[in-house]
């Protein structure tokens, strides 16, 4: 019994494949838990969806599509352009500085509900001041590398 137990517990890990040892354990746990959840949570939920009592998440929900997808598009464009512009002025942080200005302004407009003159002016000022301040303090004063 004793020796049976200890041989059951003994394990030898080949160094060459040791990077897969722990992930494999995690995969098994994940699979087990997923099966449990499938049975106890997802199945009753899908049944409820079929009966029309509940809605599917994300696809079945109402949303402000313009602002939601606008946000995603803006962020993707922001990240992408920052690197592109930054590459034109290597390691000056200008990519961050200029693209941030455009991004802050457009996102502010995207989320703005009341288009008053005052709101637009504050947005413009914020869009110029905030990135400049961040750029000056971090890139210039602290010499942090920015895109």
């Amino acid at each position: 019994m004793e020796s049976g137990l200890s041989s059951l517990l003994s394990v030898s890990i080949d160094f060459e494949t040791s990077h897969l040892f722990f992930p494999r354990i995690i995969h098994w746990i994940l699979a087990g838990l997923f099966a449990l959840i499938l049975v106890t949570k997802v199945a009753p939920f899908m049944a409820a969806v079929k009966r029309g009592e509940r809605k599917l998440p994300i696809v079945g929900e109402a949303r402000d599509s313009f602002r939601f997808f606008g946000t995603l598009v803006l962020i993707v464009a922001y990240f992408y352009l920052m690197a592109v512009v930054g590459n034109m002025f290597p390691y000056t942080g200008y990519g961050f500085l200029f693209v941030s200005m455009g991004f802050v302004l457009l996102m502010a407009f995207l989320y703005m509900h009341e288009w008053t003159k005052k709101a637009v002016i504050t947005a413009v000022i914020t869009a110029i001041v905030a990135p400049s301040l961040a750029w000056f303090v971090l890139a210039k004063l602290f010499k942090i590398t920015l895109p």
């Binding site: 990240f79 302004l105 989320y111 961040a134 971090l138």
Partner: peptide
């Protein structure tokens, strides 16, 4: 919020980019 959110995104970008001393994938 329409001013706060873009600034938060901007600062998150700075932080993410700077944490490993300048790696775009972190953004």
């Amino acid at each position: 919020k329409h001013l706060l959110f873009p600034i938060i995104v901007m600062m998150c970008v700075v932080g993410a980019y700077a944490i490993n001393y300048g790696i775009m994938f972190d953004v």
